[in-house]
Design a protein around this nucleic acid. Structure first.
Lengths: 159, 159
DNA sequence: TATTGTTATACTCTATAACTATA
DNA sequence: TATAGTTATAGAGTATAACAATA
C-alpha cells in the first residue's frame, strides 16, 4: 500500500496550520502506540516521565500534569496498582504524600523513551542533521511562545 | 509570570525528540482548549473535519478516524444528539447509513478552524514567512514518513 | 456466509462536589 | 479556616464480543 521509495506521484501538501495539527497527531499516535505496547496510556507515560527526576506530592504532580487533584488520585491509584509508582507519607506534613517511581516503572518508561526516540529517528531520517536542528529550534520557539501565551515562565528555577 | 519580552534568561532547550513531543502537546492542547470553548472535544472536531467534504458511511468514517465501528457509533450518537451531524439511510444498501454534517455543525467547525488558525499564527509570529514554509515542509516530510511507516499511500486517488 | 451497524460491557480518563484529616 | 488528599458521581471516549438485519 505504501508508495514505493522514490515514488514521485503528487499528493496534497497541507499548509502550516494543517501540517502542525497532522504532525501532532502523528507524533502522539506514535507515542500512544509505543506506550500501548507496554500497556501504558500517554498520560501514564507523562506521569512516569515527570517522576523520572522528581518526587512531588499529589498537588504538585497535578500542576505538572495540568490535572485536577481528583484526576491525579485515580491516575496514581492505577499506576500504583500496576507497581509503577508508590505513595510515601510525608514526614513533615501528615496530610501529604510523596509520589515516586518504582524500579519497574523506571525500567518501563526507559523502554518507552528509547522506542519513541527510535521512532522519531525513523520519521526524520530524510532530514539532514542541519534540518533536524532547525526543526528543533522552530519547535522550541513555538513551545516558548505557547508558554508565554499561557503566562508560564520557562526559565530555570521558576518551576 | 511570563518572561518579559526580550528577556534573555536561559532555559533548558529540548532536543528534537523532546521538542516534537512537547510541540505536539502544545498544539493539541491549544486545539482542545479552542474546541472546548465550543463544547467540543478534539475527536468531535476531527469528526466534523472529516465530514466537511465527505458523506461517508459509519464504516468508512471509522477508517478515516482510526476508530472501531462501535466507537464510531457512540461518537456519532453524541454528535447527532447535539445536532451537529445526521444519519441518513443509504438508498443502495439497507444496512448502511450516510453520515453528514449539519449546517450547525459546519458553522461550529468553521469557527473552531478559524480560531485554531489564529492561534497558530500567534504561536509562530516570531518565525519569518520563510521559516514557516520550511517548518511546514519538515512537518509534511514527517507526515509522509509516518504514512509510509503505517503502510498508507497518501497519493491522490488512492483513498 | 459476509458485511453493516448497534448494543452490552468494561475500563481509562477527566472534572465537580462533598468529604476527611491535618495544619 | 485553609490545605492535602480521597471518594462519589457523571460523562466522554475507547475496545471486545455478541447480536440483528441485510447482502
Amino acid at each position: 500500500m505504501a508508495a514505493p521509495p522514490g515514488d514521485t506521484a503528487s499528493y496534497e501538501v497541507p499548509d502550516l496550520v494543517d501540517a502542525l495539527a497532522q504532525l501532532s497527531f502523528v507524533i502522539l499516535n506514535s507515542l500512544a502506540e509505543i506506550a500501548g505496547e507496554h500497556e501504558l496510556s500517554i498520560v501514564q507515560v507523562r506521569l512516569l516521565g515527570v517522576l523520572r527526576d522528581r518526587e512531588p506530592n499529589m498537588n504538585t504532580l497535578g500542576r505538572h500534569l495540568g490535572l485536577d487533584k481528583s484526576s491525579v488520585s485515580g491516575l496514581v491509584d492505577r499506576a500504583q496498582r500496576r507497581g509503577l509508582v508508590v505513595r510515601t507519607p510525608s514526614k513533615i506534613d501528615g496530610r501529604s504524600f510523596r509520589v515516586s517511581i518504582t524500579e519497574s516503572g523506571h525500567h518501563t518508561v526507559e523502554k518507552v523513551a528509547t522506542a519513541y526516540a527510535a521512532r522519531i529517528a525513523t520519521l526524520t531520517e530524510t532530514l539532514t542533521p542541519q534540518d533536524r536542528q532547525t526543526l528543533a529550534q522552530y519547535a522550541n520557539r513555538i513551545i516558548v511562545a505557547d508558554a508565554r501565551w499561557n503566562g508560564i515562565d520557562l526559565r530555570i528555577g521558576r518551576h
